[in-house]
Amino acid sequence: MFRKYLWQRLLLAVIGLAIGSTVQIDEARAEYGDIVINNYSDAAGMRPAIFPHWFHRVRFRCKVCHADLGFKFKAGGNEINMVKIIDGQYCGACHNGELAWSVENCNLCHSAKPGTSTQVHESTVQKLAPATLQKK
């Protein structure tokens, strides 16, 4: 009896595994809400910068950057440039070689695929609405 339907069982098991894996990849994937900043990077021949919120909020509360340091809640809306950072503003308040690694490590922030636009990656709106409906 067991051997009789062996190949059907195997076939169904393979189909089941295939369905199971594809469904899950779509459903339960973490959205990081990473910020891509490409105000000047592409034009300067650098990879766009990525700010990972998840990494920073393990170590700092939102208010440290958004209240005390003056970061606006707007991807690409702060007109950050390297002169300001080296001057100790914005990222430079910590990324100065004392609190966090310093600006010589260009590639650690400038790590996005070239041409990636300024965005909140995987925001709810980005996931639900076509790109044409999203506010620039």
Partner: peptide, 27 residues
């Protein structure tokens, strides 16, 4: 497709769901 084959397929599907969840949560 006898009933127990179907059960086997559903079981395989569920096992896969369970195992993949952990690995795929974090891209």
């Amino acid at each position: 497709f006898p009933a127990d084959s179907l059960r086997a397929a559903i079981a395989a599907c569920l096992i896969c769901l369970g195992s993949v969840t952990l690995a795929e949560d974090w891209t």
